[in-house]
Design a protein around this nucleic acid. Sequence first.
DNA 1: ACTCACCCGAACCGTACGGTACGGTTCACC
DNA 2: GGTGAACCGTACCGTACGGTTCGGGTGAGT
Lengths: 216, 216
Amino acid sequence: MPAAAYDIATSRPDAAPEFSPRQQAVLQHALTLLVEGGEKALTTAGLARTASCSKESLYKWFGDRDGLLAAVVAYQASQVHFPSEAGATADAATFRAHVTAFVEELLGVLFSETSLALNRLSIGQSNTNSNRLGQLLLERGKNMISARARAMLEAGRRHGLLKYDNAEDAYQVLYGLAIRDVHIRLLLGAASSPAEQDLKSQAKTAVDHFYRLFGA
Amino acid sequence: MPAAAYDIATSRPDAAPEFSPRQQAVLQHALTLLVEGGEKALTTAGLARTASCSKESLYKWFGDRDGLLAAVVAYQASQVHFPSEAGATADAATFRAHVTAFVEELLGVLFSETSLALNRLSIGQSNTNSNRLGQLLLERGKNMISARARAMLEAGRRHGLLKYDNAEDAYQVLYGLAIRDVHIRLLLGAASSPAEQDLKSQAKTAVDHFYRLFGA
DNA sequence: ACTCACCCGAACCGTACGGTACGGTTCACC
DNA sequence: GGTGAACCGTACCGTACGGTTCGGGTGAGT
């Protein structure tokens, strides 16, 4: 009986190691292949050759190809760390700076080639396999970020710096103001304009708009 | 020599017929397969069986599988028509109603299963084939819509109803306020919440926010 | 030195699918 | 009625890739 494929249900988002160093190295190779050539570039034979491991090991570790893909997503999600800066929300200026930094970080992550490749992969698979990859990306990626964002906004509201009814709605607006249609354009393969690469200015504009809507 | 595959370069967005009725019927079947099962459900043999045509005809009409996919995208893009309501921008209330209707229409199109399936397809292919599908979707879909939106907003600005520096930027904000992260969540296979299915209320909220930022 | 777990590399198998070829049918036009 | 174009259905081919198996090698523990 082969080892079970990576199982979305039994994995906890806070489980730290989850993969051995060797496995992480292989997953990093898989990620590189994915970024370079998309899903069809990530074949089991190709990965085994690139990562200098045997296909047997791949199947032993990840169960099957779907398990491998899920592992790649989980691995990359575990690599992304947002600095938890929700602590010092002392005065209005620093809080606003924190929000701006958060947005900039968000843009940086979402527009990175790695994130784009994984989103493309998950989206391409979203109508098969009972959609494990999409679920995984939503759980480990978007929901994590949104939870942290809501916590940050709530802190601002408690300090009387923001004003809104629903934290989730407020976050959604902030997200929309920051991302607009750039994400989908990049996912479709468009090149980002020079203005879109200036994440700092993008973030500032988005936060300016956000404060005009929800600033206290 | 087989017929040339559907060529993005020589096709004009305003070319009306482009496909014979029989071909359109086949493309409609292809679209159905695509919506139901994603890209891997659209095999040449499967489409030939479903649409009661021969594989030989498919290859004659569309060149190869990539040409078929491009034809599906082009066909569906030609089916989407936004009502051109930019004419009567008489008073403030009706203009705002037009903007709201536009946003609602935009949401309806982007969140439809058909649009989602085509976006998934194009995104999944965006790092292969020199990215013909992504280009096509951007040209025929997003750019068309954005051009129309800019025209509408410009009309509002000329009538002193809106105030902004850059029409494209303003449209981007409107887009972000309307779509937020719902599009990407749906692309990833998430089910839309009941609130998200109320397009009318979504559109109203987005336009409210938009006016607070850009209303004159 | 023996064993055992782990793993690499390569060969192998089955199958699904893109693409082609061919015989037979319909239908328009002469 | 003859002819040719368009097309359907089916059989067929080649290949790429997921998945399995096997022989050999390495290194830690006893």
